[in-house]
């Protein structure tokens, strides 16, 4: 066991990890941040996406020990300081961008990464960027609408309809 330090949602944290401790279990089991979901645990679904130093990363596919000193943002870090939903989260609620909600943390974090790189993405760019995030419920239309709305764009008609 060794202590691994990171900065998670702006807070300095430290926890005793094994070599095999994944970032997803560091966050969920050691820090109690269960907002990050583990859907497949095989690097396929994107439910576990968090930001590591600002970049989208599948937390089930990185070892905590390899990320010593990293700055990590999880879905818990997306809310406003007063606890109300942040802009991206609110757009997912407003546009029904979720049904069961299992994929939503990953969708929100991938959206945050996308909008940081490309503040006004086209619908095609949104679909392309979210290709590693799988949703079993919504059929994606409302997710794309939510991302368009979160980027301050018209969330009305989508080309794919």
């Amino acid at each position: 066991m060794s202590q691994v330090k990171m900065k998670v949602n702006g807070r300095e944290v430290s926890a005793a990890t094994e070599g095999r401790t994944l970032l997803s279990s560091y966050l969920r089991d050691l820090l109690g941040l269960t907002g990050t979901h583990v859907g497949c645990d095989t690097s396929q679904c994107g439910a576990c996406v968090v930001l590591v130093d600002g970049k989208a990363v599948k937390s089930c596919t990185a070892f905590a020990a390899d990320l010593e000193g990293a700055e990590v943002t999880t879905v818990e870090g997306m809310a406003n300081p007063d606890g109300s939903l942040g802009r991206i989260q609110q757009a997912f609620q407003d546009y029904h961008g979720l049904q069961c909600g299992f994929c939503t943390p990953g969708m929100v974090m991938s959206t945050a990464a996308l909008l940081a790189e490309n503040p006004k993405p086209s619908e095609e760019e949104v679909r392309h960027y979210l290709e590693g995030n799988i949703c079993r419920c919504t059929g994606y239309q409302n997710i794309v609408r939510a991302v368009m709305a979160a980027s301050g764009q018209d969330a009305g008609a989508l080309a794919a309809e």
Partner: peptide, 9 residues
């Protein structure tokens, strides 16, 4: 290659 999260690692 893959998706954005795969390309970041």
């Amino acid at each position: 290659i893959g998706d954005p999260a795969v390309r970041n690692r």
